[in-house]
């Protein structure tokens, strides 16, 4: 116990927390994006994350764990998830946009139930894992501790996703239309834009991020059923404390969540998981609408 309080121990825990925060960010930014544009809390987000991880495993195994297979898995698993979400959106979800939020929420819950069982049917209840390519194996010395290379990789991908998403939503025409449609969908429709497809694209993009998060997390944890339940609740909390629909809010929330948990391990290992939740409660008590400005 005493040794874990050293500076090196703290630094290594911080870095672990940061890389965990990056996964949380990628997943919750997708959730936040859907919330911001469609105003639907997508309960199925966790299931899509899980499917992303399973799909990454299948692709990686198909290439016998080679480095090329790994990179292909990282690329294609999110696309698999995107296709699934596109089908669900065009087939069913797009007919419900006029309904109450509660109905939309329950629809995504139904989607979660169905996807959960379909995942069980397709991949079974076994524990799986995939191996990172040699380039990302091993560790490098950072601040006096050995830090896994894969976590460094995550620390690079996370900010890239954040910047990409920020550029997309503020600098491109699609982003501007999407934000306008979130504020006043009828007006956007009236000036001749097909709002339904804007929503579809936003939904699929958000789900793609869930799949990406699942693919990226797969080398660090064992892939199994039930990983959807824990991530979705964390993602919801992150989005809430960050400010609904705000990408940078999702980043801030993820950092708070990841770091409080990893530092909490040093203080009270058994209750480490409680710290992020406590942080959430403190933040929401002080600032009920989240730290950063909500988009609506």
């Amino acid at each position: 116990m005493e040794t874990s309080f050293t500076l090196a121990g703290l630094a290594s825990q911080l870095l672990v927390g940061l890389s965990r925060a990056m996964i949380l960010f990628i997943v919750s930014s997708g959730l936040s994006f859907i919330l911001g544009v469609l105003r639907v809390p997508n309960v199925a987000h966790g299931s899509l994350y899980m499917i992303g991880a399973f799909a990454a495993h299948t692709i990686a195994v198909a290439f016998e764990g080679s480095a090329a297979g790994f990179w292909l898995a990282m690329l294609c698993a999110p696309l698999v998830v995107a296709v699934i979400s596109l089908v669900a959106e065009r087939l069913l979800f797009c007919h419900l946009y006029e309904r109450e939020h509660l109905m939309l929420l329950l629809f995504t819950f139904a989607l979660m139930l169905i996807l959960g069982d379909l995942t069980k049917m397709t991949w079974g209840a076994d524990y799986r894992s995939i191996v990172a390519p040699p380039l990302l194996q091993g560790s490098v010395p950072v601040l006096g501790t050995a830090f896994p290379r894969y976590n460094l990789f995550l620390l690079m991908v996370g900010p890239l996703v954040a910047i990409g998403l920020w550029l997309l939503s503020t600098k491109t025409k699609f982003g501007k239309i999407a934000r306008a449609a979130a504020v006043d969908r009828e007006m956007v429709g009236a000036i001749g834009i097909n709002v339904s497809w804007v929503f579809a694209f936003a939904f699929v993009l958000g789900c793609l991020l869930a799949g990406l998060g699942g693919a990226l997390v797969s080398p660090t944890i064992s892939i199994t059923l039930g990983m959807d339940h824990s991530i979705i609740i964390e993602a919801f909390l992150i989005v809430t404390i960050g400010g609904l629909g705000n990408i940078w809010g999702a980043m801030v929330g993820s950092l708070i969540f990841g770091i409080t948990q990893s530092v909490g391990v040093l203080v009270l290992p058994q209750f480490a998981i409680v710290f992020p939740y406590l942080a959430v409660v403190v933040i929401l008590t002080l600032k009920p609408t989240g730290l950063l400005k909500s988009v609506w």
């Binding site: 609740i233 919801f236 909390l237 809430t240 404390i241 058994q270 209750f271 939740y277 929401l284």
Partner: peptide, 28 residues
């Protein structure tokens, strides 16, 4: 805490507070 907010924020805040209770029951 929740009634200070409306609609979706109400629900989200409640999920967080409820999850805190859940995590306590799970970890204590």
């Amino acid at each position: 805490f929740c009634v200070r907010l409306n609609k979706l924020y109400f629900g989200m805040l409640q999920i967080s507070l409820g999850s805190l209770i859940w995590i306590l029951a799970l970890r204590w």
